[in-house]
Design a protein around this nucleic acid. Structure first.
Lengths: 335, 335
DNA sequence: CTTCGTTACTTAACCGGTTCGGCTTATCAA
DNA sequence: TTGATAAGCCGAACCGGTTAAGTAACGAAG
């Protein structure tokens, strides 16, 4: 029941409470000798700062927020998020900061959460994921003055600090890849069009397809395995039938693969598949999946570092984390 | 910049701060008329309680803790956790409580986190997952007096409150299933033996195999896709070769499936597969996977409810959430 | 020797709530 | 009319830190 307070430390050291505070926070105002003595006593008593007290007086919570506006079901299916959260955590825990994680149903609830957190002074800053086209969260965050880092393309961030991966370059690489294998009719099974990343990829896909003179279609889904399978059926029914499909995540790619195989078509002989978000899934299927790979854990860590920069007073800037790398595996074959 | 405090409300209502506090907290000590007036003004000013202040004086943080001692990599691969967290969240958010989530490397760090949280008064209670055999966390939590609900079999909980699913019954159902299909030589690809759930299943597997007079082997892994694939290769090399394999999670089952298919064996004609933790994966493979299914999101919610019960003063008790249900799909076939 | 500026503290206000003892006033039985 | 009881409210202490303002001691500059 260690209820050690700085008052107790002050008593034992024979100095005032204030001096102890200065000593413990590495601030000027005490001599090195006193500081050392205070630190020693604090360590002996196993003193741990009371978060609430510190937050109340210092107006810093040392907590950062992350709201996920996705159904619990999606979160189970998408390995992506947990990895991202793990990356964010890795930065926080070494500084012994905390993460407030909230799962909500939609964007309105997400905005309400920001309002609440801001009013409660619950968090020092937030990470905003799943950036949308003309994202309604941006003006709210601006108005609240809540420090934030957006995860997504600068074109969507409206001047706020953001971290992004180059979806355009990745998509271009994917199309160059399938074109170089001789494919001329291709399809894209995409996420929801209101998502910024999807929009960026859609643009890049169209541009590259035109440049390479490919026949190319886009099928939008909600990212789920079910809709990924349905979209794949649509793709296969098209005439002429595409010989390569590029998926927006690996879950849909795996679902699509099952559909294709169930119809008696062979991968990669009949159809080439490319996935996005290279999780373990891409390596355990048979055949293994060609994928646009990026380090999700590292991405989470990078975003958190940028948020700390923003709190330290850095000017808002966009920061390119990386370009997803095309890893060519067994699901790719020449036409 | 809403910096509305109860002091301001008190001023406007012409009552004392204390009276406002009673009114807002639905406590006796103010007349209904006053309470109504206070509530009205509070609503008008959009007052939101300051968490830190409330926590400091009330010694309640309204925050609950969950530590995951797994690598970020595992967390990405295992869809399980995100679903569980989502379930926990769903209960917390409707009461506007918060979740402190921490990802650490091992059990020692997990214990250190509990110590820190307890000293800081950071959380009101914790959820403990991945229960071990003779779990070292139990005595620590007891000593700290930190309210907790364990997720795992009562046999492992040492009298602490716990929520569990009946792994023994589930495993028995799985073996009855494969035996009824005529399989006589079977294998189990299990998780790490130090995990309580794995241990429980190991026991049940042995007992059922003996009862049914089956030739049965167990191969322990770290739950990863890689080791699941390796274990599957070991299984296939055994003589006599098993005709049915039961996996401890769906990730390994999918990995195993790829290995089997790559070797030219057919599922389910040559080998029957049964998975555990029925996520989307089991339904998107070809063939689809027979699995022991349970509602992970509901499980998380249930556990959180029990923790709230414990904090409300409930006696420690074990609580059976459910028995995983065997869903028979295409990967099952008669010998 | 006075004056000024540092350094090393102490004191006390403050953050925004909760809670307890005590003071008024109204209510009601004796 | 009086005394007991309770409801309603006030004032102030308190939670555990941070920090602005004040003070004493001391060395250097004028």
């Amino acid at each position: 029941m260690s209820r050690v307070t700085i008052k107790e430390i002050a008593r034992r050291c024979g100095v005032s409470q204030g001096a102890v505070s200065y000593a413990l926070n590495n601030q000027p105002g005490v001599s090195e000798a006193t500081r050392a003595r205070v630190l020693k006593v604090a360590a002996e008593l196993e003193w741990v700062p009371n978060r609430a007290a510190r937050q109340l007086s210092a107006a810093r919570s040392e907590t950062f927020g992350l709201v996920l506006a996705r159904s619990a079901q999606t979160l189970i299916e998408e390995p992506y998020f947990m990895g991202f959260v793990g990356g964010v955590e890795s930065v926080l825990s070494e500084k012994s900061f905390a993460l407030a994680l909230q799962v909500v149903a939609d964007l309105d609830e997400e905005i309400a959460t920001y309002r609440k957190w801001s009013a409660e002074r619950r968090v020092d800053g937030v990470i905003v994921v799943d950036l949308r086209v003309a994202d309604p969260r941006i003006p709210v965050l601006r108005k609240l003055g809540l420090p934030a880092v957006l995860v997504g393309d600068p074109a969507l961030a409206d001047g706020m600090p953001c971290v992004w991966t180059d979806g355009t370059a990745a998509m271009t690489a994917a199309l160059d890849h399938v074109e170089s294998l001789g494919h001329r009719v291709i399809a894209r099974v995409a996420g929801p069009p209101e998502f910024g990343d999807v929009w960026i990829r859609d643009q890049a896909y169209d541009v590259a397809a035109r440049r390479l003179a490919l026949t190319a279609s886009i099928h939008h889904t909600d990212y789920s395995a079910t809709q990924g399978a349905d979209a794949t059926r649509d793709v296969l029914a098209a005439i002429p039938r595409p010989t390569a499909i590029i998926y927006d995540n690996d879950l849909m790619a795996v679902a699509g693969m099952a559909v294709i195989q169930a119809l008696g078509l062979r991968i990669p002989d009949d159809i080439t598949l490319v996935a996005w978000d290279d999780s373990a899934l891409c390596r355990i299927t048979h055949p293994t999946l060609t994928a646009l790979s990026h380090n999700v854990v590292g991405y989470g860590a990078e975003v958190m570092h940028r948020l700390l920069d923003v709190l330290a007073g850095a000017q808002p800037q966009s920061h390119l984390y990386s370009t997803p790398l095309l890893l060519i595996r067994e699901s790719s074959a020449p036409r």
